[in-house]
């Protein structure tokens, strides 16, 4: 496997419906499940499947993504040979928002030429899942298909494709003649002359494409059937290490049905919520059905229901913020919420 499969992650996608959470970051770097970024899932899956060379194609606002990935060390991808490659697209003004844009790949065609891996898997960056790609590769080789498209067994295409690297190069090189702009164009063209197969994946998988679905997928993690499918000891989801101490529950804290990352100081009440690393929750504060991102500070006696706090938000004492399951109240990164503003 090691030298057989090349990982290609398309991180150029932007979803308008997630705008409020994407003003400072790309979709790939969207925080998820208290300590991860969305790209961690597909990247860890690749590493856990024995892939040792991963190319990431980001577009614009990739500062937070680069900061997160670094040299790839946390995924064991800081290698002398192969490892993690970062290819920001030079095509800034293109409106292509499709997975596996050949135009973006073309700018780095040398990479594909230089890679010795016989097969390539092209994926999106925003699927929450824990999947081993080894059986998929075996299946693909055995089937003799040119292109395998991964579907969820519920019938949704997962925007992931497996092809021979040589065919991928050919598709990129002939994009002007064929008119194909991405992998999806190829499989959707009734006139194509490739054998295309469908591989059904039966495990848990959700593609994050709107605030509503980000919110519900996050809170769904509290269902133990769901998190047990995502967090598997033998196939860990890897992420950037933060050296936070364990979380401390202080006098007066009451926590039920919650997922809580390290480095938090909890004085108040937390119910049905996801709390990220380094969050402080004051005395008498009540947090219900919320997603609280890294390093937020919620002061004493606040009441938050159905709220998403982006990173570094400060909520001043006594503030009340409420949203609904369909329309959670989103507070942008680094802002301050005062009691007077929203009471």
């Amino acid at each position: 496997m090691k030298r057989k499969l090349l990982g290609v992650i398309d991180a150029t996608t932007y979803h308008d419906d997630l705008e409020e959470l994407l003003t400072h970051r790309s979709l790939a770097a969207l925080p998820f499940a208290g300590r991860y970024r969305i790209i961690d899932f597909v990247l860890s899956n690749m590493v856990n499947s024995g892939i040792s060379s991963v190319a990431i194609f980001p577009k614009m606002m990739y500062r937070s993504l680069m900061d997160h990935l670094g040299s790839g060390k946390n995924w064991d991808l800081n290698r002398k040979r192969d490892g993690l490659f970062f290819f920001p697209t030079p095509v800034v003004d293109s409106d292509i928002n499709k997975i596996g844009s050949f135009e973006n790949f073309a700018a780095n065609l040398d990479f594909f030429y230089r890679s010795s891996q016989e097969y390539s898997i092209i994926t999106n960056c925003y699927t929450v899942f824990n999947m081993n790609f080894k059986p998929l590769l075996d299946w693909h080789i055995h089937s003799g298909c040119d292109i395998t498209e991964i579907y969820h067994e519920n019938g949704t295409p997962m925007e992931m494709y497996l092809v021979k690297t040589s065919l991928l190069i050919k598709l990129i090189e002939t994009r002007n003649e064929t008119g194909y702009t991405c992998m999806r164009d190829v499989v959707l063209d009734p006139e194509h002359n490739h054998s295309i197969c469908r591989y059904d994946y039966s495990g848990y998988a959700v593609m994050i494409n709107s605030i509503e679905n980000y919110f519900s997928t996050s809170l769904n993690l509290l269902n133990s059937d769901v998190w047990k499918q995502l967090f598997i000891k033998e196939q860990p989801i890897l992420t950037k290490v933060k050296d936070e101490p364990p979380t401390r529950y202080l006098k007066g804290s009451a926590v039920q049905n919650a997922m809580i990352a390290n480095g938090c100081l909890i004085n108040g009440t937390v119910e049905n919520s996801i709390i990220s690393r380094g969050v402080k929750i004051g005395k008498g504060a009540v947090i219900k059905n919320c997603i609280i991102m890294q390093k937020c500070v919620i002061e004493d006696n606040c009441y938050l229901d159905s709220v998403i706090l982006d990173k570094d938000v400060k909520v001043e004492a006594g503030t009340i913020l409420t949203g609904t399951a369909r329309d959670p109240f989103v507070v942008r990164k680094g802002t301050k919420q005062g009691a007077l503003m929203n009471s």
Binding site: W227, T247, R248, Y249, V255
Partner: peptide, 18 residues
Amino acid sequence: NQPPQYISPEAIVKESLI
């Protein structure tokens, strides 16, 4: 490198480090 801690609906946590 483990996932966040999970506190179930039945759990009670008082003055602890987890």
